[in-house]
Simulated assay, not measured.
Amino acid sequence: MQDLKDTIKEVIYAVLPLTIVVIILQFTIIWLPLEAFLQFLIGVVLVSVGLVLFLLGVHVGLLPVGEMIGSTLPKTKKLSIILFFGFLLGFVVTVAEPDVRVLALQVDQVSGGEISRNILVYSVALGVGIFVMLAMLRIVFNISITYLLVAGYGIVFLLAAFTPASFIPISFDAGGVTTGPMTVPFILALGVGVASVIRGKTSSSDSFGLVALASIGPIIAVLILGVIYG
């Protein structure tokens, strides 16, 4: 019950400022039609209810399961299993990410169907999966995240030189949408679980940086699409 109350407060504090600003603008500057304004208020209520349910789901299901999976994989003592399931979980959670699907739909519409939403979604998911797998390698072998970030963005800038200009902003947007409400909680929890077993509780900070690495994969994937379609 306390978790529910805290979640409701968190959602209210998040949604209320935007709602107040829109209401002030409505009665001072923009004066939207009454129907549109009422639709906005209904939307605020629906979004608030949805966020409460989603955040409860994250705390009750996604975070505990992600951390349990992460803490169980290293106990197999098989690097191949850790890497495979790191890739698989990164892939499937990205396919389920609503932000990725919104971007894919917009790109599909703008390109006139030349770049279908399914191609973009699965390309982005493939990029996330590969870099989550690399993040697992980083935790296992205690590799500095600096090296991986420098190498990753080095590849990004190299590909950008051979990619049509229209694909470059899409690629960075793809990196941004993967840091959404489905991907981030699960990947962070997975990293915490793996690091707590392999590096010990005192080194659980090794789990952080997974999202930074995971966001490079989609950028590279879309840039490669640009090279192919360009």
Rank of each mutant, 00 (worst) to 15 (best):
residue 1 M to Q: 06
residue 2 Q to C: 12
residue 4 L to I: 04
residue 4 L to P: 00
residue 7 T to R: 03
residue 7 T to E: 12
residue 8 I to G: 00
residue 10 E to I: 03
residue 15 V to D: 10
residue 16 L to P: 02
residue 16 L to A: 15
residue 17 P to K: 12
residue 18 L to S: 08
residue 18 L to T: 01
residue 21 V to F: 06
residue 27 F to Y: 08
residue 27 F to Q: 13
residue 37 F to T: 02
residue 37 F to N: 12
residue 38 L to V: 15
residue 39 Q to R: 06
residue 40 F to N: 05
residue 41 L to C: 15
residue 41 L to H: 14
residue 42 I to P: 10
residue 43 G to H: 15
residue 48 S to F: 15
residue 51 L to H: 09
residue 53 L to D: 08
residue 54 F to G: 14
residue 55 L to E: 15
residue 55 L to D: 03
residue 57 G to M: 14
residue 58 V to L: 05
residue 59 H to E: 12
residue 61 G to P: 09
residue 61 G to N: 12
residue 62 L to K: 09
residue 64 P to A: 01
residue 65 V to C: 07
residue 67 E to W: 10
residue 69 I to M: 06
residue 70 G to M: 05
residue 71 S to E: 07
residue 75 K to E: 07
residue 76 T to F: 13
residue 78 K to H: 14
residue 79 L to H: 09
residue 80 S to E: 14
residue 83 L to E: 02
residue 84 F to L: 05
residue 86 G to C: 10
residue 88 L to K: 10
residue 88 L to Q: 14
residue 97 E to T: 12
residue 101 R to Q: 13
residue 103 L to W: 05
residue 104 A to E: 15
residue 104 A to Y: 07
residue 105 L to E: 05
residue 105 L to D: 14
residue 106 Q to A: 15
residue 106 Q to E: 15
residue 110 V to C: 02
residue 111 S to A: 11
residue 114 E to C: 13
residue 117 R to C: 02
residue 118 N to D: 10
residue 119 I to H: 03
residue 119 I to V: 15
residue 120 L to Y: 01
residue 124 V to Q: 04
residue 126 L to I: 12
residue 130 I to Q: 00
residue 131 F to E: 00
residue 132 V to E: 00
residue 132 V to N: 13
residue 135 A to C: 02
residue 136 M to D: 00
residue 137 L to N: 11
residue 137 L to Q: 01
residue 138 R to K: 12
residue 139 I to Y: 00
residue 141 F to Y: 07
residue 141 F to E: 01
residue 143 I to D: 14
residue 145 I to R: 06
residue 145 I to L: 10
residue 145 I to H: 06
residue 153 Y to G: 13
residue 157 F to T: 14
residue 159 L to S: 09
residue 160 A to G: 06
residue 162 F to W: 08
residue 163 T to M: 14
residue 163 T to W: 03
residue 163 T to N: 05
residue 164 P to Y: 13
residue 165 A to P: 11
residue 167 F to Y: 01
residue 171 S to N: 09
residue 175 G to K: 11
residue 176 G to D: 03
residue 177 V to Q: 05
residue 177 V to F: 12
residue 179 T to Q: 12
residue 179 T to M: 10
residue 180 G to A: 10
residue 180 G to Q: 07
residue 182 M to F: 15
residue 182 M to E: 08
residue 184 V to M: 15
residue 186 F to L: 10
residue 188 L to F: 06
residue 189 A to I: 11
residue 193 G to P: 09
residue 196 S to C: 04
residue 196 S to F: 05
residue 198 I to N: 03
residue 199 R to P: 10
residue 200 G to D: 08
residue 202 T to Q: 10
residue 202 T to P: 05
residue 206 D to K: 00
residue 211 V to M: 06
residue 212 A to H: 02
residue 213 L to S: 10
residue 215 S to W: 02
residue 216 I to L: 10
residue 221 A to R: 09
residue 221 A to Y: 11
residue 222 V to L: 12
residue 223 L to S: 11
residue 223 L to D: 04
residue 223 L to M: 13
residue 228 I to E: 04
residue 228 I to G: 04
residue 230 G to D: 01
residue 230 G to F: 04
residue 230 G to Q: 07
